[in-house]
Simulated assay, not measured.
Amino acid sequence: MRKTKPLLYILHLLIFSILLTGCAHTPLKEMFYGSWDQSFSMYTDDLNALLETPMHGDVGLEVSLKATQHYHNNGTYSGEGEFIFRIKSANSDIPLRFFIKDTGKWSLHNNGSRLVETSSGGSLTPADTFTEQFLAFQPELTAIFGSFKPIKGEKNTANILSISSTEMEIQEEESKITLTMTRQ
């Protein structure tokens, strides 16, 4: 009987340490699994820093996005949301609304510090009649807005600034836009 008590004590200690170690660390890749909401807005001054030809004069632009990104455990993703391009001047405020959808594959690189998404394709479609009609009368804008459509094979790389069970912050490598995403 005496030998079983120390053996039981060691066994309990071993089980406790295994459980503690297993609960304390979730692999980084598994932290991505699930649905993440994101939203951001950019205004004329911020956009001018990204544009080859900055906007001048009385016209301003606001770009906003509300979207949900789903990271699946098989290495694929899907996302959908609404882009709003708001053209502002002293006399008008023109909101152009679009639905955007994208699917593809995702992977982590550089020891989990970089997220790479490769698009399988997607769509960008007017979300309302006003946007459809506006683009019909301004065909040169159709090409500009068409450039926001997800392109098959296009890669988007982001640096992972932080991630927890409820929030993720990433910075897109090319544009330097920082996004905060919250788990659904």
Rank of each mutant, 00 (worst) to 15 (best):
Q38A: 14
E167K: 13
I163Y: 02
H12A: 15
R183Y: 05
S64A: 08
K29Q: 15
S119Y: 06
T103Y: 04
L50I: 00
L115F: 05
I87G: 02
L96W: 05
S78L: 06
D58L: 05
T44I: 05
T178S: 09
T44N: 04
M1I: 05
A127H: 02
I160C: 07
G79K: 02
H56L: 04
S35Y: 07
W36V: 08
G34F: 02
D93C: 03
T166V: 10
G22D: 10
L124S: 00
S123C: 04
L141F: 15
R183M: 05
F148I: 01
L124G: 01
S41Y: 02
T4H: 14
I144P: 00
I170F: 02
E167N: 12
K105R: 14
T76H: 03
N156M: 15
I151G: 03
E154T: 02
M42D: 05
Q138K: 10
S107H: 11
I84A: 06
K152M: 08
K3D: 09
S17W: 07
Y43R: 12
K88Y: 08
K101T: 14
N156D: 07
Y33H: 14
Q69C: 13
S175A: 11
T182S: 12
A127D: 06
G153L: 09
P139N: 09
S119H: 13
R183D: 03
K155M: 13
R86Y: 07
R97Q: 06
T4C: 11
S113N: 10
S92H: 10
H72P: 00
M1H: 09
P27Q: 07
S17N: 10
Q184N: 14
E80V: 02
I144Y: 06
K5W: 11
F32A: 05
L108H: 08
N110T: 13
E169M: 13
L96K: 02
K149Y: 04
G34D: 05
T103Q: 10
R114W: 03
L61S: 01
A67F: 00
I15T: 11
E80C: 02
